Simulated assay, not measured.
Amino acid sequence: MADAGPSISALSAGPNNCALEEAITLEMDFTTPRELPAGSWRVRFVADTAGSCKVVELGSTDAQRYPEGPGKMRFHRDSLDVMHLQRAILCNVGLMTATLLDGDDEVLEVPMVVHVTPDSAGKLFRSIYNPLE
Results as ranks from 00 to 15, higher is better:
residue 1 M to E: 12
residue 2 A to I: 11
residue 2 A to L: 12
residue 5 G to R: 05
residue 5 G to F: 04
residue 5 G to V: 04
residue 6 P to T: 08
residue 10 A to K: 08
residue 13 A to L: 14
residue 13 A to N: 11
residue 13 A to S: 12
residue 14 G to L: 06
residue 15 P to C: 01
residue 15 P to V: 05
residue 20 L to G: 06
residue 20 L to A: 00
residue 22 E to A: 14
residue 25 T to N: 06
residue 26 L to W: 00
residue 26 L to V: 01
residue 28 M to A: 15
residue 28 M to P: 07
residue 30 F to W: 01
residue 33 P to S: 02
residue 36 L to R: 04
residue 36 L to A: 03
residue 37 P to S: 10
residue 37 P to G: 06
residue 43 V to I: 04
residue 43 V to Y: 00
residue 44 R to D: 15
residue 47 A to W: 00
residue 53 C to H: 09
residue 54 K to W: 14
residue 55 V to Y: 04
residue 55 V to K: 04
residue 58 L to T: 07
residue 60 S to D: 08
residue 60 S to I: 05
residue 61 T to D: 02
residue 61 T to E: 01
residue 62 D to G: 15
residue 64 Q to P: 12
residue 64 Q to Y: 14
residue 66 Y to S: 15
residue 66 Y to N: 14
residue 69 G to A: 06
residue 70 P to S: 11
residue 71 G to L: 04
residue 72 K to P: 11
residue 73 M to N: 07
residue 73 M to F: 06
residue 75 F to Y: 06
residue 75 F to D: 02
residue 76 H to F: 12
residue 80 L to I: 09
residue 82 V to Y: 03
residue 83 M to D: 13
residue 84 H to Q: 13
residue 85 L to E: 04
residue 87 R to L: 03
residue 89 I to T: 12
residue 93 V to D: 14
residue 95 L to P: 05
residue 95 L to E: 03
residue 96 M to T: 11
residue 96 M to C: 10
residue 97 T to Q: 07
residue 97 T to W: 03
residue 101 L to A: 04
residue 102 D to Y: 01
residue 105 D to I: 14
residue 107 V to G: 05
residue 108 L to I: 07
residue 109 E to G: 12
residue 110 V to H: 00
residue 111 P to A: 02
residue 111 P to F: 00
residue 112 M to H: 03
residue 114 V to A: 01
residue 117 T to K: 04
residue 121 A to D: 14
residue 122 G to Y: 00
residue 124 L to M: 10
residue 124 L to R: 01
residue 125 F to L: 12
residue 127 S to H: 11
residue 127 S to D: 15
residue 130 N to F: 08
residue 132 L to Q: 07
